[in-house]
Design a protein around this nucleic acid. Sequence first.
DNA 1: AAGGCGGGGTG
DNA 2: CACCCAGCCTT
Length: 279
Amino acid sequence: MEQVLDWYQENKRALPWRNTSPWGVLVSEFMLQQTPVQRVLPQWHRWMELWPTPADLAAASLSDALREWGRLGYPRRAKRLHQCAQVIVTDHGGEVPASLNELRALPGIGEYTAAAIRAFAFKESEVVLDINIRRLYARCWSGIATPTNAPNNSERELAKNLIPVGDDGRWAAATMELGALICKARTPLCSHCPLADICTWRALGYPQSEVEKRTSAQWQGSDRQCRGVIMNALRAAPEVKRQELTKLWGNQSQYEKAIASLLDDGLIEKRGSNYALAR
DNA sequence: AAGGCGGGGTG
DNA sequence: CACCCAGCCTT
């Protein structure tokens, strides 16, 4: 996926939390939970000016933190961030911890935020699944317009398989930026997308084909991302045995349904007893 | 697995 | 007007 990393290098926004301390990254991630980038920018600068380290915020009052949160929304996040700073001081010597388990144990940090902090602050290769990345994967690799409400295991498996070997967190940053700037929810800019020629969603005839409508409506719940796992496996090898496909992840019946739908959509085809991408 | 939690911008 | 946004936590 070199084209994605190249696109990122050329087109990334100069966001202030791209080059800051782990604490700066952590604060940005709290603010960005369900709040758009443009509205976070001024508030982030204000917080980093007032409280440049976890100890500074931990020493402040909760009411100060809530006041400086302003109108970002979901003010419980300000309270959790304040608590988070206090735990970092008492349990981690005032330094943002670097391990997944320690991060997940902090108040207000869930699956996404822990992985994002490791990728962006500590340059670790992580499975990062925010709404931008999930939408990009759903479309490009699963041929589905909109991701499910929450990540499932087949989606995590697909994401894990897509990370380039030797990644330093740039893959997460690049795919997130691509989802935010190009593969947008309402008006995707496919003509500018470095993945346009391999995108399954486009192969299905986005934006308004009957196939796409049917595919989105028909696929619900944890079955949906299996399409992506299968498509990814078939991209990696010219032909794959059915037995190999059904062993890729979990529930076999999900694969039976996914294979059938991909055949029906004309995205894959049978080659003797094997399967391959359609020509 | 589903629902609650804010607020502001956009098609 | 409905939808969308670098989710998390509690039923």
